[in-house]
Design a protein around this nucleic acid. Structure first.
Lengths: 217, 217
DNA sequence: ACCTGAACACCGTTCAAGT
DNA sequence: ACCTGAACACCGTTCAAGT
C-alpha cells in the first residue's frame, strides 16, 4: 500500500500499474493478484488509506469548530496524496473509513439540533464540496492561469476579468470562503425559530425522530 | 463527438477507446489522430460539449433564482451524460464554456453586491459543489446501499443509522438542501451590514475595484 | 494531401507448468 | 500451497509505405 502511494506521489495516478507495483515490491507480476484480486480493489484500498487520515484526533468545543475541523482534515488528507481526490472520488466502494467519517459528522449535526435527514444531507454537502475543491486544486496545472490570452479574454469575459482572477488560485482562502458559506447556511437552519443572532451559539438538543416509514430491511 | 458521447452513454467512459471510436466512425485507427491529436484533447472536447448545455437560456428575476438556475442547469448537464462529472472533473483545460459559465456567474454575484474576490470564490464554491455531488451520484452503483450489512453496521455506526439512511440516495432533494445552504450563506454576506431580514432582497450595487497590485502580464 | 497496414511499447488478467 | 514464464486480448501512438 505504501509502495502504491509512493508510485502515485512520484509519477501520478497514471503511473500506478500492476507491473510497476510488482517491480517496486520485488515480486513477479502474477503474485500481485494474490494480494489484490483486482486493480479496482487496489484503488479502493488506496482510497481507504487516504481517508484514514481524514478523521481529526481532537474535538472542537462547538459544532461549528468540529465541522471546520472535520472538513479541513478531510481536505488535508486528500491533498496530502497526489491525485488523492481522483482516487477517492473514483472509488465507489462502501468504504469503512467513509462510514466512520460520516458517522461522526452526522452525530455532530444531530447534536447541534438538525433532524436525521438534514444531518445526513449536511454531511454529504460538506463531503462533496471538499471533494470537488480538492479535485479542482489537484487538477490545476501550474501554468493554467497564464496560458489563456489575457487580452483577448478580457473582452470575451468582461465580468470575470473585472475581478482579481488570480484569487481563483488562492486555494486555502477560497476553501475557507466556501466552507464558511455552508456553515452559515447550517447555522441559519439551527436558529430558524428565532431571529438570527450572529455568534450566539448554544443550539437546542436534537429530538431527531427517525421517520416512521423507515424500512429496516 | 456525438459518436464518442454515444459510446460513453452505452458502455461507460472505460469503453471509449480510440479504436472503438474509429470503428463507430468507419475510419481506420490512425485517421482519428487527424481529428484529435490526443486522447486527452478528445476528452477535453467532450467536457466542452457537456458544459455547452450548462448555460440556461432564460434568466431569473432575482439573483437567488439566477444562481439556482445556473447550478441546476450545470447539474443537469453533468447528469445528462453518463460519467459526465468524471469527464468534466478530469479535464484540466481552460475550457471556453467553463469561462463563459464563470463569467455569467461572477456577473450575477457582483450585481448582487459581492466584491470581486467573493464573487469569484462564490462561483468556484457552487461549481465544485455541483461537480462533487454529480460525481458521487454517478459513482453510486444501484445496490451500493443494500450491499452493506445493516445489522453489523447499525452497531458500528450508531449515529449514521439513527437517521433514515436511504435519504443519502435521494439525490435531487439532497442537492437542493446543499445548494440552499450555500445560498443562505451568500444571502447572509450580502446583508452583513444590517440585521438579517429574510427574503428582503435588494442588494447594494457593487463598487468592486480591481486590486491595485494586479499584474497585467 | 490523405489514408492505411503494421508495428511499438505498453496495459490488466489468466493459467499451465514448475517447485 | 505457493510462485513463475508465457501468453491473451486489449490499449495509445507512430510511421513508412501506399494511392
Amino acid at each position: 500500500m505504501t509502495a502504491a502511494r509512493r508510485i502515485v506521489d512520484a509519477d501520478g495516478l497514471e503511473a500506478l500499474t500492476m507491473r510497476r507495483l510488482a517491480d517496486a515490491l520485488k515480486l513477479q507480476l502474477p503474485a500481485i493478484y494474490r494480494v489484490f484480486t483486482n486493480k479496482q480493489t487496489l484503488l479502493d484500498e488506496l482510497a481507504e488509506a487516504i481517508l484514514a487520515e481524514a478523521l481529526p484526533d481532537g474535538r472542537g468545543d462547538h459544532w461549528t469548530a468540529e465541522v471546520a475541523l472535520l472538513a479541513g482534515q478531510l481536505r488535508t488528507a486528500l491533498l496530502a496524496q497526489r491525485d488523492g481526490a481522483r482516487i477517492v472520488g473514483g472509488s465507489y466502494a462502501a468504504k469503512r473509513n467513509t462510514l466512520t467519517y460520516a458517522d461522526r459528522f452526522v452525530g455532530i449535526m444531530r447534536q447541534a439540533g438538525l433532524d436525521g435527514t438534514a444531518a445526513l444531507w449536511a454531511t454529504s454537502t460538506v463531503f462533496c464540496y471538499v471533494l470537488g475543491e480538492a479535485l479542482e486544486q489537484q487538477g490545476q496545472s501550474a501554468d493554467a492561469l497564464d496560458r489563456l490570452d489575457r487580452n483577448a479574454a478580457r473582452e470575451t469575459y468582461p465580468q470575470l476579468f473585472a475581478t482579481p482572477v488570480e484569487e481563483i488560485v488562492n486555494f486555502d482562502e477560497r476553501f475557507e470562503f466556501g466552507l464558511g458559506l455552508i456553515l452559515d447556511g447550517l447555522r441559519q437552519r439551527l436558529h430558524s425559530a428565532g431571529p438570527a443572532e450572529p455568534g450566539a451559539g448554544r443550539a437546542r438538543p436534537a429530538p431527531a425522530p427517525p421517520r416512521p416509514g423507515h424500512r429496516p430491511s
